[in-house]
């Protein structure tokens, strides 16, 4: 066993020092005209790669990247996937929120002379969290990525911001606390596609961040469900082929159940352990990655609601 591990790590080191051959990188999927997604598979942060749906949108004059993945290597592969499609300049990197599976590839785009854009709370969230993310990434992978690589300054979206890619306008909307306190929605006006990132989980259990709000999240989905303009939706985790009504209903059902049952627990016994052990067990068969995230969701939502 020991031998296997050391062999494996030697292999890992070699692999990462070999220059990346862009031709060997699997192309991103064009899910709408000019909208490319590098699909993900379910996995554990830092241990697994490609665990979030990330991608890019191509206009007539420029390209915007939407999230950069969980490592610099993932970011570099995304650059390959972009170059496979277009040689237009990568003018913007948009981060949908601070979580490391969406932002740790950022520094791969430093050399591309891009503008980094995020929710107005993103800069602070990065300030508080990103060194911890990187330390854990290094602990887990055995790599030694310097925290000097962290992108620390972002163009803030306070409410809404339009960016022009040439005959294609993206509308970025900073939302209230939902999955985190720094979520950004990206809307492509051309194809009426809403890049929801982690505001929508598809088949993968919805995961709430410590800074998020179940109330805010439910409110947001309720509002989006009334919107008749949006035609396509891109989730942050799970398959890209999506039925919006089903996906949004499922997510709403899960989050509502947790919110209501946790409120009930707080107003009666107020017992976190019992809440984690008893609430929402019937949802187990309905979601992938349930056992990894369900109890933690309860713990976070309990903290949010205990003194609401």
């Amino acid at each position: 066993m020991m031998l296997l591990i050391s062999l494996f790590s030697v292999f890992e080191t070699r692999a990462s020092t070999t220059p990346l051959d862009c031709k060997k990188v699997t192309p991103a999927v064009e899910i709408q005209s000019g909208i490319f997604v590098r699909p993900s598979h379910n996995g554990i942060l830092f241990k697994d790669e490609n665990i979030a749906n990330i991608g890019f949108i191509v206009g007539d004059k420029a390209i915007a990247v939407i999230d950069t993945g969980g490592s610099i290597d993932e970011g570099k592969r995304l650059i390959c996937q972009i170059k496979q499609q277009s040689n237009l300049p990568i003018r913007y990197v948009i981060n949908t929120h601070v979580h490391p599976d969406h932002t740790m590839g950022n520094s791969a785009f430093k050399a591309e002379n891009t503008t980094f854009i995020g929710h107005k709370n993103l800069t602070h969230a990065v300030g508080i969290l990103s060194k911890t993310y990187l330390r854990r990434y290094n602990e887990v992978t055995g790599k030694n990525v310097s925290d000097k690589t962290i992108i620390t300054s972002y163009t803030s979206v306070i409410n809404k911001l339009n960016i022009d890619l040439g005959n294609r306008t993206l509308t970025l909307t900073a939302v209230q606390k939902a999955h985190t306190n720094n979520d950004l929605l990206v809307f492509d006006n051309k194809t009426k596609t809403l890049w929801m990132s982690d505001l929508l989980f598809h088949k993968h259990i919805p995961v709430i961040g410590k800074s998020g709000s179940v109330n805010g999240w439910l409110e947001l989905i309720k509002r989006l469900k009334k919107n008749k303009i949006i035609k396509n939706f891109i989730p942050g985790h799970g398959p890209l082929q999506i039925n919006w009504d089903d996906a949004s209903n499922n997510q709403t059902r899960y989050l509502t159940l947790l919110r209501d049952e946790i409120r009930k627990n707080i107003s009666t016994e107020s017992d976190l352990t019992h809440a984690m052990e008893s609430i929402g067990l019937n949802e187990g068969s309905k979601w992938q990655m349930f056992s990894t995230f369900h109890k933690r969701n309860i713990s976070y939502i309990f903290s949010e609601l205990e003194w609401e």
Partner: peptide, 22 residues
Amino acid sequence: MKYMNTLLILLSISFYASTFSI
């Protein structure tokens, strides 16, 4: 996904620990 990292470290450490005890 903020705390997935915690979980992961846990997993990896227990993995190495169990390998070691073997």
